[in-house]
Amino acid sequence: MKNETPELFKKIFALSVIAVLIVGFFLAFTEMPKGWGVNVNGRVSRLYVLKNVRTATKSLDSGKFFAKGVKPLRTDVAYTPIEFKKTANLEDGAANVVTSIVVDYRGFDTLGEVTVLFLAVSGVMMLLFGKRKKERKKKTEPSLIMYVGTRIAFSVILLFGIYIFVHGHLTPGGGFPGGAVIASGILGLFLGRRGYSPNHMGLKAFESLSGIAFVIIGLIGFFSVHSFLANFLPTGIIGDLYSAGFIALIYIAVGMKVGSELAAVVDTMITDTEEEWS
């Protein structure tokens, strides 16, 4: 297919699109409301966008969490501050708020994101599918320091990755970064020795079983609380390792899945294959 559009036209077109986007975003950000008030009310918490910075700060200072005209959703439950390591049985006991939004309130989105990654990896594998080529002549073997170093680093990186996703509800991080960290450790192994290949059956089993585990955790919520992906475990005391219900379980599943999938991508990309359509 020949591309006959003149170069100048292409550049002008691209620049005009970018200019429209930039101007639009500039207008958008100048018109955007600034400041917000937060309300945590018993079972229901909510982020309200207020139009005015001054009203927001005033209402925060005076202890009222609402601006004029905005009514609290529940007036029967009084607002109580949360104390670390003391308050128990919150609506969602994760100390890391991001995690509680990502996994509990919007857990269905996370399941979707995991699926998106899974499908992208499946697509790459389907395109690069073929017979594994035989090892070619070894050109340059990495040095001994590289070989030993990557192996030592791998164990530390693996531990760090596991730490990130197990403590996802307490400290920053979670399944996705943890899995990515583990996968970068495995990438190090690939670089450390020519012709390294992980256990394919193990990778495949890990990939499938962790995904199945995620859906099954969702289905347990479906059968016990009668709502898909509902938090069916007690939330515990905020700040404890055993708190926040099923968040840690889901993050372990997500971490294993992301780690094994990214490792599988690196593996498929690195090994030479020959197309077969026999």
């Binding site: 399941l111 899974f118 499938s208 995904g211 199945i212 995620f214 859906v215 099954i216």
Partner: peptide, 8 residues
Amino acid sequence: LLFAFSIP
């Protein structure tokens, strides 16, 4: 979703 993950 459950079966998509288990198809491999």
